[in-house]
Design a binder for these strands. Sequence first.
DNA 1: AACGTAACCAACCGCCCAGCC
DNA 2: GGGCTGGGCGGTTGGTTACGT
Length: 350
Amino acid sequence: MGRHSCCDKVGVKKGPWTPEEDRKLFSYVHQHGHGSWRALPPKAGLRRCGKSCRLRWINYLRPDIKRGKFSLQEEQTIIQLHALLGNRWSAIASHLPKRTDNEIKNHWNTQLKKRLSKMGIDPATHKPMSHALIGQPKHLSHMAQWEIVRLQAEARMVRCSKLASRAPVSNPNCYHSLLLTAAAAAPPPPPCLDILKVWKGMTWTKPPVVDNNDFFAPSDHNMLMMMTTTTTTTDSESAFLNCAAGNTADGKNSDYYGQDDNINGILMEHDNSSSILQQQQLEDRDMITDNHPIISSNFMMSTSQNMVAGDLPTSVLCAAANDVLFFEDNKFNYWSDILNSPPMDNWPVF
DNA sequence: AACGTAACCAACCGCCCAGCC
DNA sequence: GGGCTGGGCGGTTGGTTACGT
């Protein structure tokens, strides 16, 4: 009832964080843990409210944050999970290792939402808008055409990985069949009730409505080459490593920290002994996911399978089941369309 | 080169909820 | 049981950068 924000106090600083503030916060949390966020600022020598400190730590300073461009697999996961969970960014973020809910939310609002809209898909419902352009590719914008082609290729990757996970037989139509075999050889995830599992197991019945002749049609290989050129992430996207190296994809942040050797020093000296096992697991995962897009797709799915079941309320699972019914009935679901698109044999070479 | 616009993203705001007293 | 508090979350804002004219 008219409660004042914790940041309303006189003398509490707002606005962008300075490198010095970052350094103070990082060293304090690193040494003592955050404890009570409200009590932290005076102890750490900061004139910030606890909430601001918490946010800064969670969204920026935390050691296990990955920054830089989102990979195809990450974008796909976001879209899929958003279709099921809506704007529950923290829930979505829990399935994307090293990504914060804020970053995912920003990425959705600035990029993914627009892409879906351009394709005539309502980003809120993930269903075609009434004025959808799907099925009328001649009238689609250039960008929309590219986006559809990109998603189709992406979907083929998923489809290939699904096939590989069912039977460890190389599929000559898929890129990097050896990787698929490797993916299939990986230990299966433990059985669980999972919306993504439901998603994966959906029976797609809708034939493609897209007139392939109207589209650019690069080969899978070339498409993948193009996509990896434009959206691939690297092993060195950890914010801290990048800050130290000054070579992040996010030039702004790199420059920012590059101005403060103290920060870089702290980052490099960061003793991760307390979380070394977890860190190693994350790095091992990156070794796989960043280098092998198809394995990555499988990995993300199986990772999600391991993580989702425990924290989803029944209502969400019910909603997921309803979504399944919708997908089964709806002839114009965009993922269905994409996943069912036949391989194009007239892809131009770039 | 200067200006205007778009895109991006860090940070804030306010609400909600669980836990504590 | 009810009020208070801390923490978490989603929505929004505003500053900065990139791009176009």
